[in-house]
Design a protein around this nucleic acid. Structure first.
Lengths: 353, 353
DNA sequence: CTGAAAGCGCTAACAT
DNA sequence: ATGTTAGCGCTTTCAG
């Protein structure tokens, strides 16, 4: 029976409930002797503070809510696939929550909802999380940020694009990473490069494309609109986009896709029109998903430290909550390192290109 | 600011808080006129019942806790990989929670802890979930089941092996699926088959191995201990296990690994000793992870409907909570269909074998 | 059909 | 250094 209350402990230890509260919350001004008595009673009874009572009475709920995009989630759910990005993110957040005795609640948010503002504040008033973890594309959604700020909830944004002053920001240099990938391709000798971009609402889509185009310009190549096809981060969209790109009059010798799933689609599209990778076409992705390792050939890609980002975000969220408006020891804008992983899918262009 | 209480709504509507409570909870015995007044006030104020207040005052918390194995999670976190299985599971659970206005809390449980009993009841008394979703290997952990039953919390077990009377059980026929895979291999002409099994604590490991061995026996082949190497569901362990298996005096022409990650390891091990798949060695896995699609060759495997299982579990958990001890409309033991997916990694054995 | 009162288990002010 | 007293926002009795 899990019904041990603070009163039970107080009675058992022969002290007041406030003393129990002091001990279990690690507050100062408790004599060692009292502390011991209380701790003994707590152990014997197996007492644990009730989350809901604490959050109702106090100012903190010990809950961190991860706001995940509903659309993307449903899409994955439909196709029976998992979401590697989300999974890594969550593992990172979980590890931190556990250490800090926080609890992770996962909530779906429909960033496209007409009632987003209402839905979200509704959600907040229902669960009253101490902190919120924002994943793309919610990290950049102005309404989401507004509601969070109005509600006074601390929040961390994973991979935000702009408004870096708002909330804790944890990101990597997407633009530079895309720049590096493109430069790698150019360094191999490619002159005709194309890009499969991500969907609009995602900041990463824009940043990666910018990095791609800047690299072209910096190396004397002119970015053109025809050399970019928009996808939606799914395999199928990569397949389709590559179809367009490879059907062009002058076809590219290298394609950089904004994520691995799409790059895998590109790989397949190339194979289906008889192009060999990397001999005829080099392909690079972004994310370093598990599949990227096992594809034929393995994908050259960018490893994004998602779990680390989530952990960093949670780690900064927690003390911020602890000492509401406290010392604010750590920086609130964190840029995590990425790494370019060159595998078999990229090589010099064919001789005759 | 999110501070709308039931009193605010009551005042606005000119009724008592109990009436508001009745309306928002959909209780009977409310005049339409009162209901309308309350609903209007609720809408105007953007009122939402507080989770913690409800769970403190009432008997339900509207929280479903997913108990995830800590060890496996940490392992994944370390290696920077996501967990496809967990991800799919969670998506399924999330979709159902959302519909039922439940909230999903993800908690790590260390099934190997010496204090498992204490840790778990501690967790339960802290968050007091209405229902618990158990994933392997916790689905079969007797202590976990005991604690849950003692605490009187409803629970659903994903892929349990035994004690099918306890809690809601959602599973697939692992043994039969493994039997089918093995039979597929035997049907191709293989006579020397080996198995890379999963780790002990997982029921699936045992069941899949049993299915493998039964298929051998049913086809006049003798299962031998040497033909089984134990892995731990990781790629590396598959690599190592295949090393053992392929180093044997008489080497197998087909290897069935208890999951895809290990099968991928087998693929690599084979390649590294110069064996071609599927010409020299057929390989089959289990799970249908994303990588299985992109490996060379693509893996023959079993698609396990994880998201569906989780959704089915949550779906049965919720009404059970709703009408505590109510009609109990749906079956509590659900067996979901699987499917054998034959891809390029399996073929007849070489002529000279 | 509707409402008033009494907690749920805790924390937050205030004593002492 | 310790204890007392109010609530937090709701659901439950129990009355009308």
């Amino acid at each position: 029976m899990a019904g041990v209350t603070i009163y039970d402990v107080a009675a058992r230890a022969g002290v007041s409930i406030k003393s129990v509260s002091r001990v279990v919350n690690g507050e100062p001004n408790v004599s060692p002797i009292l502390r011991d008595k209380v701790n003994a009673a707590v152990a014997e009874l197996g007492y644990r503070r009730s989350l809901s009572a604490r959050s109702l009475a106090g100012s903190s709920s010990s809950i961190i809510a991860a706001l995940v995009d509903a659309e993307l989630t449903i899409e994955h759910w439909r196709s029976g696939r998992g979401n590697d990005y989300l999974s890594r993110l969550e593992l990172g957040a979980l590890m931190e929550c556990r250490q800090a005795d926080y609890h992770l609640m996962v909530e779906l948010v429909d960033h496209g909802s007409a009632n987003l503002r209402r839905d979200l504040s509704s959600l907040l008033s229902a669960i009253r999380p101490d902190g919120v973890l924002l994943t793309p594309p919610n990290s950049d959604h102005p309404v989401v940020l507004d509601v969070l700020e109005e509600a006074g909830v601390a929040f961390a944004r994973i991979s935000p694009e702009q408004d870096l002053g708002r909330g804790i920001c944890v990101r990597m240099d997407e633009r530079q990473a895309a720049y590096d990938v493109t430069t790698h391709l150019i360094g191999l000798g490619h002159q005709r490069l194309a890009h499969v971009s991500g969907p609009r609402p995602y900041a990463a889509s824009k940043l990666r494309r910018e990095g791609f185009e800047k690299a072209l310009r910096d190396h004397g190549l002119a970015p053109s609109a025809e050399a970019v096809a928009e996808g939606d981060f799914t395999f199928e969209s990569g397949l389709r986009a590559a179809g367009e790109l490879l059907g062009a009059a002058v076809r590219p010798t290298a394609i950089f896709a904004a994520n691995d799933d799409m790059a895998l689609g590109v790989l397949q599209a190339a194979a289906s029109v008889g192009l060999k990778t990397p001999e005829d076409l080099s392909v690079a992705g972004f994310d370093d998903t598990p599949s990227a390792v096992f594809s034929t050939p393995p994908l050259t890609t960018v490893r994004q430290p998602v779990a680390e980002m989530a952990a960093a975000a949670a780690r900064r969220l927690v003390p911020m909550l602890r000492a509401a408006m406290g010392s604010e020891g750590e920086r609130t804008d964190v840029v995590t390192p990425y790494s370019l992983i060159v595998r078999g899918s990229t090589a010099p262009p064919p001789r005759d290109a």
